[in-house]
Amino acid sequence: MTSTKEIITNGFWSNNVVFAQLLGMCPLLGVTTTAMNGIGMGMASLAVLLGSNVVVSLVRNYIPTEVRIPSYIIIIASFVTIIDLVMNAYLHDLHKVLGLFIPLIVVNCAILGRAEAFASKNSLARSAIDGIASGLGFTFALFLLGASREVLGSGEIFGMDLFGPSFHPALGFVLPPGAFIALGFILMGIKWIEAKREEKKAVATPATAAHPEANAA
């Protein structure tokens, strides 16, 4: 059984929805023109993930296996609708920007993925932690991509001008192709960090380097 600490590092980093699983690409690429949009979308997804994980975990022993997927989808869709309505009512401006993408959280396979792979087999507390960790991991990825596109594409961060009027931003990064390019470079960076860490580990503990840790992948 995985420890709480492992659930957190798995959700946030080593099994990150975006960096490791490459799920949720549609909202990821669609909304991340600014850092703030990324955070907003990330937090909305986090709320849905937490809610659906908790409820799926609660009902996991009562839903017959044959109909579990449709039930999970109803649960997820309900949470998305709730978030949609609540954001529309109380965060109207952000909702206007993200509007189109909020309903699409339903089809973010990362959320169904966590429900099926984790929450349906684990206790309430562990599922909640997993939901928060995965949600934060997703938010972090959205923020990273949003921030880099905003800096490169508009020369701003959180709407603040960074380089003054003489700076000509690379407009392409705000446009859809820029999303793919920026994501590619970020993934490259992540893989590089991972490779460095592996190397260090191998050097530090040469005796256990061959330990079958690899099956976690």
Binding site: V59, I74, I82, L85, A89, Y90, H92
Partner: peptide
């Protein structure tokens, strides 16, 4: 099982809609 899930989900959504209807209209 599906019916219960559907019923509970629908009632929760109905309540949410009723609560947020006013604020949404006001925001618009």
């Amino acid at each position: 099982a599906l019916m219960v899930v559907g019923l509970v989900a629908t009632s929760i959504l109905a309540v949410t809609e009723a609560v947020t209807r006013g604020p949404i209209a006001e925001a618009k």
